[in-house]
């Protein structure tokens, strides 16, 4: 029970100061949950954000649910999600009842013009800290650049690609590309992510089960893999076009 209250309060605090949307939450999560409480790692946060982007619902809530689940299962997920919701609900109820012209007040406008500058810097610093862990080689860098360009300038491009589609394609690309260079790539990824969580070693029996299942389902693509990898770049292009339609 105390754990659930801890989760609720931690996310209540974050919800109260989370200005500027889902990704602006990252620096706050880092400070509260990674540095202070050690409930999660930056690697995991990054994974949660990627999944939160391509599943339905508000990204910040999705990330809250993930962390709550990791800490305390279903009850934890509910506690952290409601914790994150609480402050915004109260604030909007107050504004809706008393301050109908809230957003037009000069002091509010000025304060938030200042806050946006700070949010911008917080995001940049979070990116700098995450960079080494995510962009582990040249291929990952290329992936980053392509997706960044498509996401940041989506309004200027003739076809707009949904952000969720971009993230899903990156995941699919990862599955195919990693298979192509099995030996070196695999050890690199372990070095990259193994620092904070010993993922590969945990729960050996479960892992074996998972692999055998995945192999049963994925026999065909595994056989045809070498052919696929040759036309990898072409395929990537057509996939992206399909998603655009």
């Amino acid at each position: 029970m105390k754990d659930l209250l801890d989760l609720y309060l931690a996310f209540f605090k974050i919800g109260m100061v989370n200005f500027g949307g889902g990704y602006a939450m990252l620096p706050l999560l880092e400070e509260e949950l990674v540095k202070k409480k050690h409930w999660t790692s930056m690697d995991e946060l990054m994974d949660y954000f990627a999944i939160g982007q391509c599943t339905p619902g508000v990204i910040a809530l999705n990330v809250s649910t993930f962390i709550g689940h990791k800490k305390k299962g279903t009850a934890g997920a509910i506690a952290s999600t409601i914790g994150f919701l609480s402050a915004p609900i109260v604030i909007i109820l107050l504004i809706a009842s008393f301050l109908t012209n809230f957003a037009d007040l000069p002091i509010v406008k000025n304060a938030f013009a200042g806050i946006r500058v700070c949010v911008c810097i917080l995001i940049i610093q979070a990116i700098l800290r995450l960079w080494k862990k995510a962009v582990v080689d040249k291929m990952a860098l290329a992936l980053y650049l392509v997706i960044f360009f498509l996401a940041a300038f989506s309004k200027q491009l003739p076809i707009s690609l949904p952000a969720a589609g971009l993230v899903i394609m990156a995941g699919i690309f990862g599955i195919f590309f990693r298979r192509e260079q099995n030996g070196t790539g695999e050890s690199e990824s372990k070095a990259g992510t193994g620092g904070s969580e010993n993922k590969p070693d945990q729960g050996g029996s479960k892992t074996d089960e998972g692999e055998s299942k995945a192999d049963k389902g994925g026999n065909k693509p595994y056989e045809g893999n070498k052919k696929l990898s040759e036309s990898e770049t072409e395929k990537r292009g057509t996939e992206r076009e399909d998603a655009g339609k």
């Binding site: 990252l26 954000f49 990627a50 999944i51 862990k133 962009v135 992936l143 997706i147 590309f177 990824s189």
Partner: peptide, 11 residues
């Protein structure tokens, strides 16, 4: 491996 750079790109 693919999702992580995508996540940072979105951020």
């Amino acid at each position: 491996y693919g999702l992580r750079p995508a996540s940072i790109a979105m951020i």
